[in-house]
Simulated scan of single mutants.
Amino acid sequence: MNITLTNVDKNNYEDVCDLSVAESQYDYVAENMWSLVESKFNPSYQTRAICLDEKPVDFSCGCLKQLREYQFGYLW
């Protein structure tokens, strides 16, 4: 079993978009497709596919911003 964080690119974005969350999470988490679109227009967003044996099984989108002298980030 090999778990990796992989850049989302033209080779795996469809698999990432096909991932879904439990129905109980719909009100809290955007569909992966929308997060990928947002990442293309917000340069501070970084997306990764969480892969198990090279197959995307989850998705991470993070934002790294700098506000004055402080740098902070968050994941969703």
Rank of each mutant, 00 (worst) to 15 (best):
Val57Ser: 05
Val16Ile: 11
Pro43Lys: 08
Asp15Lys: 14
Glu54Arg: 04
Asp53Arg: 06
Cys17Phe: 01
Leu36Thr: 02
Gly62Ile: 03
Lys55Tyr: 05
Leu67Trp: 15
Lys10Met: 06
Tyr28Pro: 00
Cys51Pro: 08
Asp18Val: 00
Asp15Met: 10
Asn12Cys: 08
Tyr45Asp: 11
Cys61Thr: 09
Gly62His: 03
Leu75Asn: 10
Tyr74Trp: 14
Gln25Ile: 01
Tyr13Gly: 01
Ala49Ile: 06
Asn32Ile: 01
Ser24Glu: 14
Asn7Leu: 10
Asn12Ser: 05
Asn42Gln: 09
Gln66Cys: 12
Val57Gly: 08
Val57Asp: 03
Asn32Pro: 06
Ser24Gln: 09
Asp58Arg: 04
Ala30Tyr: 12
Asn2Arg: 13
Lys65Asp: 11
Arg48Cys: 10
Ser44Asp: 15
Leu19Ala: 03
Asn32Cys: 04
Ser24Ala: 12
Asn7Pro: 11
Ser60His: 04
Val8Ala: 00
Leu19Pro: 06
Phe41Trp: 08
Asn32Met: 04
Tyr45Met: 14
Glu31Arg: 13
Ser20Lys: 12
Ala22Glu: 14
Leu52Arg: 09
Glu54Asp: 14
Asn11Tyr: 08
Glu14Phe: 02
Asp53Ile: 02
Gln71Asp: 11
Ala22Asn: 10
Cys51Gly: 05
Gln25Pro: 02
Tyr26Ile: 09
Lys65His: 10
Gln25Lys: 07
Gln71Thr: 15
Asp15Arg: 05
Met33Ile: 13
Tyr26Ser: 11
Thr47Ser: 15
Ser24Asn: 09
Ser44Trp: 08
Glu31His: 13
Trp76Ala: 12
Phe41Leu: 10
Thr47His: 04
Asp27Trp: 03
Asp9Ala: 00
Ser35Tyr: 07
Gly62Arg: 07
Trp76Lys: 13
Ser24Met: 05
Tyr13Trp: 09
Leu5Phe: 14
Cys63Pro: 00
Asp27Asn: 08
Asn2Thr: 14
Val16Lys: 03
Glu38Arg: 13
Leu67Phe: 15
Met1Phe: 12
Pro56Gln: 10
Met33Val: 13
Val57Met: 07
Asn12Lys: 03
Asp18Ile: 01
Gln46Leu: 07
Glu31Cys: 11
Val57Phe: 03
Val21Arg: 08
Ile50Leu: 07
Asp58Glu: 06
Asn7Val: 05
Val16Asn: 04
Asn12Glu: 05
Gln25Glu: 12
Asn12His: 04
Asn11Trp: 01
Ile50Trp: 03
Gln46His: 08
Ile50Asn: 02
